[in-house]
Structure formats: C-alpha cells, structure tokens
Design a protein around this nucleic acid. Structure first.
Lengths: 161, 161
DNA sequence: AGGCTGACTTTAGTTAGTCAAAGTCAGAAA
DNA sequence: TTTCTGACTTTGACTAACTAAAGTCAGCCT
C-alpha cells in the first residue's frame, strides 16, 4: 500500500472514528436512524446524560451528520429537532455492519434482527465492487487517488510503510 | 422507523462498540485487516504506545477477533503473531464502511480509495437483503427474534421507553 | 403574574483511554 | 557468560468522555 502514515491522520477510517468513535456518538446515530429527533428522546433512549447528549448532538451537527431544524407545532413554542443529513445517512452501512457483527458474535445479543420492509428478508451488509462482484477481504487494495479520474494503484498486501 | 426500541444492553451495535469502540481498537483491526501480525508493527502503524497496543491486542484476542499464534522461524526464538479470526474478518464491512464514509465526507481524506484486485473497480459497501434487493435506509425494520432464555431480566439499569 | 416544560448549560467529580519512559524476561548470538 | 532484541508490563500522569444534579431560559398556559 502507498505510504499512508497512520499517525498523520490520513486514513479515512481514522477520520470517521474521530466523528463517531465513541459509544454514545455511535448510539446517537443509531437513534437518528431509528427516527429519533428530539433532545430528550436521544438522551433517554441512548441512556446518556443531558450534558453528553448536548455535546454529542452539537458535535454531530457540526460534523454534518445531523441537521438542527427548528419546527413549531400548533399552539406550541418553537423547538429544535435533529434530523439525519445525507452524510449521516451514508453512515448506515457502518451501523448495520456493527449491528450484524454484534448480533452474530456478541454473546446474548441475538435478540434483534433487521429486515427489509418490502420483502421481509433479513438484511445483510455486503462488500462489492462497482463491477458487481462480491469482494473477499484478501481481494482489497488501497490506492492513492490523484483526483477523480486518475488513480495510482498499489497492492496493499501485508506491507505498509 | 419501527417503534421497537433496542433497550440498553441488548442492542448489538452497543455490544460491537464495546469491543471496537475506541479509535485505537478500530485501527488495530484495520491493521490486522491489512495483514499486520506483529506487536511492534501494530504499535508503529497505528501510532499507539506499546502499553495501548498490548491492552488492545489482549482485549481483541479475548473478544475473539484476533488469535494469538506462536510461531518460530528457523534460528529465531519463539514469537507470537496476531491473526484475524473468522469473527475478526466479519468486521470487514464495518471497516470498509468507515473507510468509505471517511473518504467521502471527511475533508482532506479523499485521496484514498479501495479497489477490487480482480477487476480494479472501486469497492463499495452495500446494504442488501437476503432476497437480493438493494435496501435503502427507510426500508429497514428492526424485529425481535424469539429467544428462549432471557438473562433474568435484571439488566435494566436504565430502561429505554 | 406566575407556573410549567422542553431544551439545554454549568459545575464538579469519576472513569476510560491514552502516553512516555523505564523495567522485565526469554532465548539466540557473540 | 554476557549482550542484544522482540515482546511485552508497570508506573505515573494527562486528557477525553462521561455522570448527576442544579441552574438557565424561552415561551405557552392559566
């Protein structure tokens, strides 16, 4: 693989973990997926303190995963709700991947499953390529991309630095 | 979004985050995935201290994501290497999902991409169902899977509503 | 006017994760 | 026998993440 110095913060995984790398941040995103939008509901359903909820909602909003949207019901005062942005929705494969992994491997956690509304089948997260092939772990290479159109390839296998 | 709420302690995402919920734990899995097996390599490539490396490798091994395997080269002393187990390999969609998200959304990180060795096409993480349909966020339902023994019901430190 | 409520903020303290640096230890090499 | 090295462990300290509890504030309601 190209010389991606991990310590330099270049790795996208690292960037992503900086945003949703804490338990409560990830669970906050989970709740956003489930449709939770209000402050107190996030607080209660994730099981975190109000201070943590405020901090996480603020950070996730600043990072562009959630959007703070004022709304007003009839006869009620103005309120804010937190809704998923496109960037937040893009995190779905990660959440579902974690869900799958946890359901399969964490003891005693196999109580929940995910289904496709339309057909009722179990949901799975797959790694594929644009060519439509199913990809196995050992078939993945990391490449440096100069821009949208050019890519400099390099095998990733077993050698860093 | 369904109103079935994965109560604290039962959600698979939470379980998974307990195992790989820290920056360094996730990056350690990234390295394992890239083919790193030796202690010092993990330490250096993740950019963590030896103490943290030891703690994370021990925890990930205990959780069954890595396997400690003694090996010996001729004329060299016995050593240990840490290799991915099946459970660790199952985390690949999560890692790649984070990679995709980070490459797409974190600024300054869009220089890396993943490709399928066999055909050179870009890799993507897809959410599908067993019926083969591509699934969109709003089409996901969470369901309770019937299970026999419930863990004494005593785990409700804070129950979500 | 005063109360109530949702949505926070502030304060003060705890726990988890991390680091650098030094120490340990097994065993091959000199 | 002593040294060297890879693979750790230990120590002590710092920081991020978290908590409970109390305080703030806007604004609808009676």
């Amino acid at each position: 693989m190209p010389d991606i110095n991990p310590a330099s913060g270049f790795c996208p995984i690292e960037k992503a973990m900086g945003v949703v790398g804490s338990r409560n941040a990830m669970l906050t995103m989970r709740e956003a997926f489930y449709g939770t939008t209000r402050f107190d509901d996030f607080t209660e359903r994730v099981g975190m303190s109000a201070a943590t909820a405020a901090a996480n909602l603020k950070a996730l909003t600043a990072a562009g995963l959630l959007e703070r949207r004022p709304y007003q019901l009839h006869g009620a005062r103005m309120r804010n709700e937190y809704v998923l942005t496109a960037a937040g929705t893009d995190l779905m494969p990660v959440l579902l991947g974690l869900f799958d992994w946890g359901a399969k491997h964490a003891d005693g956690a196999a109580h929940l499953g995910l289904r496709h509304d339309d057909c009722g089948e179990a949901i799975e997260v797959q790694v594929t390529c644009a060519g439509g092939h199913r990809v196995r772990p050992e078939e993945v290479s990391i490449t440096l991309i100069a821009n949208k159109h050019k890519a400099t390839g390099a095998r990733s296998d077993h050698n860093d630095r």
